[in-house]
């Protein structure tokens, strides 16, 4: 009798979750971005499973990537050939990594934007818009801290000019003062113009950075 009651309650609970479509949409819009998705990441415990992606879903991802990144279809074809199946690596906290031949290429959190991995970005640096941080911020970025506005607006930092302003929520490549290659990939917490105006608090949340556990992971 007791177990029966437990069973029905479980069933109810599962129904409850499935029926709440609209609520989950609200969740998506103000879902907190997991800062430091890969600060602590160990493949043995944080990966829930790997599955090949259905071709229809692959098509959807491909078109989404083409619209979100500044990349030509031919180039994307070169890094991710149509014939090669994408493998979806599910990780904890709704983080997804998509790999081709075991090499991580695309990362995504929940339904958020698709980010390239840092190694991919190094190879094709033009696919994401750029922001720069000054030299003082590098140390903190490499420890996984989010980037504060003053580091972006100061003399060593770089924000796109007003006519190419970036809105909040854009994914960006983070560059460092005096350095040639990207140091991290992040998500703008406020628009670039807003940053200039307010000039305090968090400007860019960091998704992945040089030397985090995803960087250490060369193949899955």
């Amino acid at each position: 009798m007791f177990s029966l009651a437990g069973l029905t309650r479980d069933m109810l609970m599962s129904r409850y979750e499935f029926d709440y479509g609209p609520r989950s949409i609200i969740l998506i819009t103000n879902l907190p971005f997991p800062t430091l998705m890969f600060k602590k990441f160990s493949p043995s415990t944080d990966i829930a499973g790997q599955t090949p992606v259905k071709s229809s879903v692959q098509r959807a991802i491909r078109s989404a990537v083409l619209s979100q990144w500044k990349i030509e279809p031919e180039t994307l074809e070169a890094i991710w050939p149509k014939k090669e199946g994408l493998v979806h690596v599910k990780c904890r906290e709704h983080v997804s990594i998509f790999t081709v031949h075991g090499e991580p290429l695309i990362i995504q959190h929940f339904d958020g934007p698709y980010y390239p991995t840092l190694r991919l970005l190094h190879k094709y640096p033009y696919i994401l818009p750029k922001v720069g941080v000054d030299r003082g911020a590098i140390r903190f970025l490499l420890a996984g801290a989010p980037m504060m506005c003053p580091g972006l607006t100061s003399k060593g930092g770089y924000l796109p000019p007003p006519d190419a302003a970036l809105p909040a929520g854009a994914s960006v490549a983070i560059y460092a003062e005096g350095k040639e290659h990207a140091i991290g990939i992040g998500l703008l917490k406020m628009g670039s113009e807003e940053m200039r105006k307010i000039n305090r608090d968090m400007g860019v949340e960091v998704a992945t950075y040089l030397g985090d556990d995803l960087w250490a992971l060369k193949a899955l």
Partner: peptide, 9 residues
């Protein structure tokens, strides 16, 4: 179909 070659670093 001329994909842009990756930056070698």
């Amino acid at each position: 179909p001329d994909p842009v070659p990756p930056v070698q670093l």
